[in-house]
Amino acid sequence: MTDRLKALADAGVSIWLDDLSRERIETGNLADLVRERSVVGVTTNPTIFASAIANGERYDAQVRQLVEGGVGVDGVIFALTTDDVRNACDVLAPVAAGHPADGRVSIEVEPTLANDTDATIASARRLWASVDRPNALIKIPATVEGLPAITATIAAGISVNVTLIFSVERYRAVMDAYLAGLEQAQAAGIDLGTIQSVASFFVSRVDTEIDARLEKIGTDEALALRGQAAVANARLAYAAFEEVIASPRWQALAAAGAHPQRPLWASTGVKNPAYSDTLYVTDLVVADTVNTMPEKTLQAFADHGEVTGDQVTGRAAEAQGVFDSLAAVGVDLDDVFLVLETEGVDKFKVSWTELVATVEAQMAATSGEAGA
C-alpha cells in the first residue's frame, strides 16, 4: 500500500495530512504516517480541533488545569491548539531538517477575523510566537482584507499558509502579496531563506458549486461538463504560478534566497460518490506542489491510486477550454467564486463557533468534576 504513496511523493507531490489530534501525536500514529505513508506535513482547522477535543480524553487534564487557573474559553482554545501544533512540529522536525519546505504544521488565525486586516496580523504574530517552532505555518484566508495581512506577516519573517483560495484572479493577488512581503522582509534585513509559504487552492468545492449550476441548467451540453471544473481551475492556477516563477521580480527574490510559494491542493476529499475517490490527487500530479488530504483520501490513494506522470503542466489551454464551455452554457463564473469565498468564510466561522461550544462543554464538565 505504501508503494502508491511513495510513487506520488517521487513525482514531486508533498503529501500532507489534513487532520491532527493529540491522540495521533501521543500514540505515535502521526510518526507512523510519516514513516510508513510518506506524510510530510499536517494542516489543521477549527473543525479538526473540535472533533479531536470532543472525541478524546487526552485534553481533559490540561482543560482542568486551565479552568482551575481561571483561563477563559478563548485562552483554553489557544493553549490546547498551539500545544498540539507545537508537538506535531516536533514530530515533523526531522522532515523539515532534510527538506525545509516540508515538515510543516499549519494553524489557522481565528476565522472571525477574516475581514479584519489588523486583527489577523496580530493573531498571526501571537500564534507564531506561541507555537515557537520554525516549521509552523500560520493560515491566513485569502480574503480582500487578508491580502495585506499576508504581506505584513511574511514581511515579519513569519511563514504562511494562505487558505481559502478559489479563483485564479484571487490566487494572482495572493502571489503578489507574498512577493511584496518578501521584498519588505529583504529590506528589513530578514534572511529570506527562513520564510516558507504555500497557497491553498480549494478544489472539490468548485465542482460541488458548478455541478449544481450545471444540473439546474439541465441541457446535454451543461451536464456533459460536470466534474471538470475543479481540476481545470487548479490547472489554470498552476499556469499562473509558472508565470510568476518565470518573472524577473521573482527571479530577483530567488537570487536573494527566497523560496517559491508552492501551490497546495486543498479540499481534495471527493464529495460526489459518482467520481473517483482519488480524482483530486491523480489528476493534479505535478512536481513542487502539496496535496493535503483527509485520511480517508490518503488511504484510498494508498490502496488504488495511480500516478501516471505530470497531469498539470502544459494543460492550461485545455483547462481554459473547459471554462469557456462553462461560460457558454450559462455558468456565471465570477458569481461562483464570490459565492464560494463567502460560503467558505462563513463555514470557517461556523467551525470556530463549534470549537468554542465544544471547549465550553469540556470546561463545564471539568468544573462539574471539580465540584463533585
Score class of each variant (00 low, 15 high):
136 A>T: 14
119 A>P: 03
308 T>A: 15
359 V>F: 10
42 V>E: 00
36 E>P: 01
42 V>S: 07
51 S>F: 00
303 D>C: 00
284 L>V: 10
56 G>Y: 00
114 A>I: 07
322 V>K: 06
36 E>Y: 12
183 E>L: 02
206 V>A: 03
93 A>F: 09
120 T>S: 15
127 L>E: 02
58 R>C: 01
333 L>I: 13
55 N>H: 14
96 A>G: 10
289 T>E: 09
361 A>W: 01
171 Y>A: 09
185 A>Y: 09
262 R>N: 08
153 T>F: 08
230 A>K: 09
137 L>C: 04
294 P>C: 09
282 T>G: 02
228 Q>I: 01
103 G>T: 08
79 A>I: 02
276 S>R: 12
167 S>Y: 12
66 L>E: 06
78 F>E: 14
273 P>T: 04
74 D>V: 01
274 A>H: 13
287 A>M: 08
133 R>W: 01
275 Y>E: 05
251 Q>P: 04
315 R>M: 07
195 I>G: 00
34 V>N: 03
116 D>W: 10
43 T>A: 06
168 V>P: 06
361 A>Q: 14
335 D>V: 08
326 L>D: 00
91 V>F: 01
13 V>K: 02
219 T>V: 13
64 R>Y: 00
26 E>D: 13
200 S>M: 05
207 D>F: 12
153 T>M: 10
209 E>D: 14
178 Y>I: 10
92 L>K: 08
297 T>A: 14
348 F>H: 03
234 A>T: 05
98 G>V: 05
225 L>F: 09
307 V>P: 04
282 T>Q: 15
309 G>W: 06
154 I>Q: 04
314 G>C: 10
311 Q>G: 02
111 P>E: 02
47 T>C: 10
7 A>L: 06
151 T>R: 12
265 W>P: 05
69 G>H: 05
269 G>E: 08
32 D>I: 00
200 S>Q: 09
253 L>H: 09
244 V>I: 15
214 L>S: 13
172 R>Y: 02
222 A>M: 13
356 V>C: 08
46 P>Y: 13
92 L>F: 13
87 N>H: 12
86 R>Q: 11
14 S>R: 10
75 G>F: 09
105 V>G: 04
322 V>Q: 06
10 D>I: 01
326 L>G: 06
46 P>K: 06
196 Q>E: 07
49 F>R: 05
337 F>E: 10
150 I>G: 05
273 P>A: 12
4 R>I: 00
288 D>S: 14
245 I>S: 03
97 A>F: 02
111 P>Y: 01
372 A>M: 11
25 I>E: 02
342 T>S: 14
170 R>N: 11
309 G>P: 04
296 K>A: 15
273 P>H: 07
317 A>L: 12
207 D>A: 11
138 I>G: 09
133 R>G: 02
267 S>I: 04
43 T>V: 04
208 T>R: 13
372 A>T: 13
324 D>T: 15
101 A>V: 10
233 N>Q: 02
207 D>Q: 11
76 V>L: 06
362 Q>K: 15
243 E>F: 00
91 V>K: 03
257 G>M: 07
55 N>Q: 14
182 L>Q: 02
95 V>L: 05
125 R>T: 05
15 I>Q: 01
289 T>G: 11
252 A>K: 15
16 W>F: 10
